[in-house]
Structures are given as structure tokens and as C-alpha cells.
Amino acid sequence: MGILEIKNVGKRFGGLQALSDVNLSVAENTVHAIIGPNGAGKSTLLNCLVGKLIPDTGSVTFQGQSLLGRKPHEINQLGVSRVFQTPEIFADLTVLENVMIPCFAHRDGAFQMNALRGVRSETDIRQKAEQILEDVSMLEKENMQASSLSRGDKRRLEMAMCLVQDPKLLLLDEPTAGMARADTNNTIDLLKEIKDKRDITMAIIEHDMHVVFSLAERITVLAQGTPLVEETPENIKGHPKVREAYLGEAQV
């Protein structure tokens, strides 16, 4: 039984069957990559996990609890964090504040009426936030407004916001897209380090095969809303069905 169990999930948008009969099991403390051509339904699948979309059919369970019908903040409180394909950050706030907010959420829960306590006196939270910024090498940018960051930095910031919550399951939707080569390598190193240090499961959507093969222990190939193959990285390289999926796209 994996930490995350997706069973027979289907999702339809008007005439488009974005997901059909998806079965996927993510084992605890592994990195599971989901790859596939654009429009395969990878992001849609993540949307069904975090409460953004409700699948038409099937079930999603995390640590034995169903995620369907739960609100996004409740799912996060269970230990699921997500990095989005287009960065979702608090653009008007500083980098430091962006990271402090998840720290507060992690410590205080979904709502806390601490209106008369000063942020200044929250030294623990601040230290924790600065530590994670240090880890993603963004500490020198802590007082910058998040909207003024480069796209790659926004992604790294969002990753820091997720990591600081110490999630059990981290969902990453193309985390290195738009990053310079050096930043991509840093991100790979960071994720590897996190994986070694913590009890964390990651599901990662990625187009950059260098990233996929550096991190993943299992790979699922998704095409037109259905999983084609699930294999180890060694076995997936020359797999005929995978070629078919990608070549099929290239021919069209």
C-alpha cells in the first residue's frame, strides 16, 4: 500500500476526457516521476489530489484517508504541499514574509487570531524561515518584494515555502521549468538532500529528463489521460511504449 493511492480516477472537461482510469500508487519515501507529452493530463491529475478539482470517478487516498471532498487547506494540513506549474506566491509580500506564512500555518493551524502579537517577537519562525532561504540560497534576497524576482527564483521561493512545512508528500509540477542550468542543478541537489535527510515522498512532473533520471526511483508515463507504463528509470529508457507516446506526439 503506497502513501498515495489513486484508483480509477477520471476527469472530463466538456468534450475532453483529460483523465481516464488513472491508477497510480506512490510508495512512501520515494521519488515518483510522472512524465508525458504536453496536455497528457499531468497537472490535472495533481489538481485532483490537492482539492482544486474533484474527479468525476475514482478515489484518492493519502495515508489511508480519502482526499476527495476535502478543502485545499485541509489537504495541506494532512501533509501535502504543492509547487505549481506557474509559481503561486504572495507577490506583494517580501521573500521572507512569503516563507514565514507557511511557517505560521505549520505551527498554528488553519486559523489563529494572534492580532496583537508582534511578528518581530516571533524569532523562532524567523529563524526557521531564514534557514530555508539559506538552503535555497535566497537569503540575500529576503527583503525583496517577491514580484520582482526572476521566474526561476519565484519557483525556488515556492519550493522553499512548501519545504518549510515539512510535508509528507511534496507535489512538484515542472519545478525546473524556466530555470538556468546552474539553478536546475542546484534544485536537483537540494531535492536530493531533502530526500536523504527527511521522511518525504515526492511526486514530480518534469520534462527535463536530466532531472527525472537524477531523482526518480519510479517513473510513470502518462499519455492522453491514461498511464502507459510504470517502470524504474533503467527500464524506461528503451521502452517501446514510451517512444511511441513521445514519437506519436512528434509526428502529429
Binding site: K71, H73, Q77, E88, D92, E97, I101, P102, F111, M161
Partner: peptide, 16 residues
């Protein structure tokens, strides 16, 4: 201020 800035991110950060 987080509500004003990005309510979606707030929800996915575990805040109601």
C-alpha cells in the same frame, strides 16, 4: 495581506 496577495496560495498553504 496574504489574502489580498494570493488567496489560492494561502489555501494551498493550509490556511483558511
Amino acid at each position: 495581506r496574504a489574502v489580498k496577495s494570493n488567496q489560492q496560495r494561502m489555501n494551498y498553504t493550509g490556511l483558511n
